[in-house]
Amino acid sequence: MGDFFFGLTEWLRTTFLLDWAFWIETTGFNKLLVTNFWGVPIAQVLHIIGIGAAFAATLMLTLRINNMAGMSRSVPEVSARYMPWIWWGLLWIVGSGMLMLWAEPVRNMINGVFWVKMILLVVTVLITLAFQKSVQSAATVGGAGWNAGGGTKATAWLIVILWCLIMAHGRWIAYAPV
């Protein structure tokens, strides 16, 4: 696996991303984040808060869909309660992630682990959009008594697994040589 990421990082060095990262380092916003001792740690804390909100909401919805928690509420109620947390958490993650990217552009832009994380994030968002639409339409037809089928339950767990992979890759970025 290390050879894959090493090769990917070496290839990324040959793309425009390296020049773009160097350009970002010359901007005033980058200098503000880097010279202020608390800039990067605050961005990281904000990022972790967003991840916690989005992942916890995803996990709660998954547990309810799989009849493992929150049985006093219907799936449509739980979905209506937690989906906004997932999407607002995702916006928070993207915003704080942009701060972290701007603060350390070279570390991220030519890091193969970072780009695999971004691909996983896009895939997770697309699957979550489709999942949300299918749960809402099925719940509308089935009403409060609707129970999820096997495909819906498996998709919910897939989204949880994808979030775990995203978090693991996010942590791995710090240790991947660039």
Rank of each mutant, 00 (worst) to 15 (best):
S72T: 09
F37D: 13
A54C: 11
I65A: 10
A57R: 03
A43F: 13
M68C: 14
I51C: 01
E77L: 06
A103Y: 13
A57Q: 09
W87K: 08
M68T: 08
I51H: 00
I65Y: 04
G50S: 03
N66S: 10
L101M: 10
L46K: 02
N108I: 11
P105G: 09
A43Y: 10
W85D: 06
M68G: 10
R73I: 06
M98H: 10
I49Q: 04
L61G: 01
L46P: 04
L91A: 15
L63M: 15
A80R: 14
S72Y: 11
W87C: 05
R81Q: 08
N108Y: 11
M71N: 09
M68L: 15
R73K: 13
W85T: 08
H47W: 14
A54Q: 11
W102F: 13
W87P: 07
I86D: 02
A56K: 03
A43D: 05
L99S: 00
L90E: 02
P76I: 02
W38G: 08
S79C: 07
W92Q: 08
S74G: 00
R64E: 03
V75G: 00
G95T: 04
T62A: 15
A69T: 05
A103M: 06
G95W: 07
G89F: 00
W38L: 15
A69K: 11
V75N: 00
M60H: 14
I65D: 02
N36G: 06
S74Q: 01
I42V: 15
V45P: 03
V106E: 12
A80N: 15
W87F: 13
E104G: 07
N108T: 07
N67S: 04
Y82Q: 08
S74V: 01
A56W: 01
A54R: 03
I48D: 05
M100R: 10
L101Q: 03
G97E: 00
L91Y: 12
I86H: 10
R64M: 04
M109V: 09
S74C: 01
G89D: 00
P84M: 12
I49H: 02
R64Q: 03
V106M: 11
S72A: 10
G97K: 00
M83A: 11
N108P: 03
S74N: 00
A53S: 14
F55G: 13
I51V: 11
S96R: 02
W102R: 03
A80G: 14
V40G: 05
A53R: 11
G95P: 03
L99Q: 00
Y82A: 09
H47A: 12
L59A: 15
L63F: 14
I93Y: 05
P76H: 01
M68S: 13
W88Q: 06
W88S: 12
V78M: 15
S79I: 05
A57F: 04
Q44M: 08
V45I: 15
S79R: 07
N108S: 12
I65S: 05
L61F: 03
W92L: 14
V75I: 00
A56F: 08
G50C: 02
R64D: 03
A57C: 14
I49R: 06
I51K: 01
I93K: 08
I86W: 14
L46E: 02
N108M: 14
M83L: 12
N36P: 06
R107Y: 13
A56C: 13
V75K: 00
S74T: 01
P105F: 14
R107Q: 10
L61A: 01
S96Q: 01
